[in-house]
Simulated assay, not measured.
Amino acid sequence: MSQKNSFVRLSLSYLILIILSVCALYPAIWVVVSSFRPGGSLYSKNFFPEKWTLDHYVTLFTGTQYTFDIWYLNTLKIAFFTMICSVFLMTLSMYALSRFRFRGRKTMLSVMLILGMFPSFMSMIAVYIILLQLNLLDTHIAMILVYSAGAALGGFIVKGYFDTIPRSLDEAARIDGASHLQVFLKIMMPLSKPILTFVALTSFTGVWGDFIFARLVLRSKDNYTVAVGMYELIASQTNSYFTLFAAGSVIIAIPITILFLILQRFLVQGLTAGAMKG
C-alpha cells in the first residue's frame, strides 16, 4: 500500500512539473518561433510558420529607422559598469557592517531594511529632480550611478555570506601583520566567489531588462537602451512590428541565458550560503 501511495505521489509530482514546464516554456518558444515568421503579426493559425525567414534579424541591424546595434551597446555598457560599481560598493559596505562594530551600525541596517521594503519606483520623481538639477538627464552616467547606489542598499545577502566566514581567519591574518584592506582583498574576496558571482549576475540582469527608469531618464534616440528602443517599435498605433519585436527579444535574451547557464552553480551557492546567517 505504501509503495502504491509513493508511486501516486511521484506521478503527481512529475505531472505538476510537466505542466509548470509547459506553462513556462510555451510563451518563450512562441516568441522564438514568431521571430522567424514572415510579416508583422504574431497571430497565426499554425504554431510553426510555413515559411521561415531571417529578415527581422537583418532589419534590426541594417534598417535605417532602427539603431538596434547602438541600443544594444548602450545597454551592455550601462549593465557592465553598473555590475562593476555594484559589486565594489556592496562588498565594501557589507564587509564593514559584517566585521566592524561601530555606533549607529544597527540603525543603519534597520534603515536599509526599511528602505528595501518600498518599491524603487516610489523614489523616481525625487531622483528625476536631482538628476535635472545636476544636468545629468539623458546620460548613461546618471543611470549607472542610480543603479549602483540602489543595488548597494540590498546587500543583506552579502552581509549574511560574510558572516559565515570565520573571524579566526581575519584574526590570524592581522597577527601576521595584514591590514584591513589586505584581509578584505586576500582572504574575504577569494572565499566569496559564489556571492560575488551572484551579485554581479543579478546587477547585470536587473539593468539589462529595466524599462521604467531608463524610459524616465533617457530622451534622445541614440541614448536609448534596448528596452526603451524596443518599446518604441510598437508604441505607435500605426506600427505593428511585433515579429520584429520578437526578434529583438530573442537577441536580448541570449546573453542572459548564457550567463545563467554558465554561472548557475555559483548562483545557487551564493543564494544558499548567503541565507544561512544574517
Rank of each mutant, 00 (worst) to 15 (best):
K4L: 09
N5V: 00
L17R: 15
C23I: 08
W30Y: 13
V32L: 07
S35V: 04
R37D: 05
P38N: 06
G39K: 01
F47A: 13
F48N: 14
E50Q: 14
D55M: 12
T64C: 10
T67V: 13
F68H: 06
I70G: 12
A79S: 15
V87K: 04
T91P: 11
M94S: 14
Y95T: 07
A96Y: 05
R101G: 09
R105V: 00
T107F: 12
M117Q: 14
M122E: 09
M122W: 04
M122C: 12
I129M: 14
I130R: 01
Q133T: 02
L137Q: 03
H140N: 11
I141F: 13
A142Y: 01
M143P: 11
L145R: 09
L145A: 12
Y147G: 05
A151V: 09
A151P: 09
A152R: 03
G155Q: 00
G155K: 01
F156Q: 13
F156Y: 05
I157E: 06
R167T: 00
D170T: 07
A173D: 12
R174K: 13
I175V: 12
S179I: 04
H180A: 06
L181Y: 03
L185R: 15
F198C: 12
V199W: 07
V199E: 07
A200E: 00
T202I: 07
T202N: 14
G209Q: 10
F211T: 02
R219N: 11
Y224G: 00
T225I: 00
V226N: 02
A227Q: 12
G229V: 00
Y231T: 10
S236E: 15
S240V: 08
Y241V: 06
Y241K: 15
V250S: 04
T257V: 06
T257C: 05
L261A: 11
Q264S: 10
F266R: 15
F266Q: 15
Q269N: 09
L271Q: 11
